[in-house]
Simulated scan of single mutants.
Amino acid sequence: MDEGNTVRAVRNSDQGILVAEVDEPEGPGVRLAVASAGLCGTDVNFAAGGVQGYTYGHEFAGTTTDGRSYAVEPTVYCGECDQCRAGHVQRCSAPEHGTLGMFRDGGICDAVTVSENMLVQLPPGLDVRDACLVEPTSVAVHGVRSASLEKGERVAIVGGGSIGLLAAARQRGFDVDVEVRHEHQRIAAERLEAGSAAGAYDVVIDAAGSEAGLARCAELARPGGRVVLLGVDQHIVPIPGRCQPGQGTHRRPLRRLPQARRRPRHRTGRSTARRQPRDRAGGDHPPAPPRRRRGGLPGGG
């Protein structure tokens, strides 16, 4: 960190991503020296879309002046509205609701000041240098829980990024396969004892957040199977289905998590919980435009 009244921070500019000198963090809260920070697909998409004016990063961890280490839950919430009181801080209705690192300063910098209620103390044995993975892990864990897995079920995960691989790690003990795009993702999946996706599955988890990824989920799900959406779509995408003469439009049952980390068009490669109500660490993200309804859903209009 610099000795003056500035710190280094990663920001976007007309010249692209750069390390800028910004004012020291001020205001109420707890000061953290940032020890680790992750790049989410959201950050990449925001950068590609030219979004500027704040420090990037919502996956980060650091150490306080007294030497204690914390991961940061990046959701900004009031704690007083009905949603917060019910435990759904990711759906806070207060005007200040939002996410650090999304249109407000985040954690890819030397130091930050955050509210005490955002701190998640690390357990013994978890290195703060790895703790930037706490936020995406919370998304993956929530998605797996929402899948309501039963003994003997086959599980496929579409997407080999951090959330997809973390979801695979969380499901060890089940028959889990992962569909990936890159060789390094395949190597990581194999280390988690996950195979390659093929055949029909009881549960399919979308960790890609693309139209092609969602279509692949529908292909992999058996009739009556369950699809959990963890990916972040950047625009309206059709829900894959098939039409049978005389029976209308039939779609495979989809389970969309209530707070499905949907972010505006600017984001990227997608994560992420960060990104669904998080299991403590995590948060919500700005909502995406409403989906266009195409045809009727079973039991719907």
Rank of each mutant, 00 (worst) to 15 (best):
G241Y: 14
L297M: 13
P240G: 14
L192M: 13
D14L: 11
G62W: 01
R263F: 12
G296M: 12
L32D: 00
A86V: 08
R91N: 08
G300W: 10
H182A: 11
G248E: 14
G57T: 02
V176Y: 04
Q90K: 03
A198K: 15
C92S: 01
G38H: 04
G282L: 02
G29R: 03
L297S: 09
G152A: 00
R91F: 09
R278T: 05
V134W: 00
A71G: 11
R191G: 11
M118I: 04
V51L: 09
Q171Y: 15
N5C: 08
G16A: 07
K151A: 01
P258Y: 11
D279G: 13
G225W: 07
H285E: 14
V204A: 07
V112Q: 00
R293L: 14
H250E: 12
E211A: 12
C109T: 05
G283E: 02
D284K: 15
A94H: 06
G295M: 08
E59M: 04
G195L: 08
A37D: 01
A61F: 04
Q276R: 15
G209R: 02
P290D: 08
P124T: 13
A188K: 03
A61I: 02
G231L: 07
C81K: 01
A33H: 03
R252K: 07
P253D: 11
L39P: 00
V204N: 05
L149W: 00
E135N: 09
E179H: 15
G57N: 03
V228T: 06
D66F: 02
C243G: 14
L18F: 09
I205E: 04
E24C: 06
L39R: 02
F46L: 15
G195Y: 12
A198S: 15
R265K: 15
G209M: 04
T42A: 13
A168M: 14
R274C: 05
D2S: 02
A208C: 12
P277K: 06
P286M: 13
D23H: 12
A48W: 14
R85G: 01
T42H: 10
R145N: 11
G67W: 11
D23Y: 12
V180P: 05
C40V: 03
V144G: 03
D206N: 05
S13W: 06
G301L: 10
L126V: 10
G27L: 06
E96Y: 11
S36M: 02
L165I: 07
A71Q: 08
T65V: 04
A221M: 07
S146G: 09
A35G: 03
G106Y: 01
D206F: 03
A212K: 11
S93C: 10
R226E: 12
L149H: 00
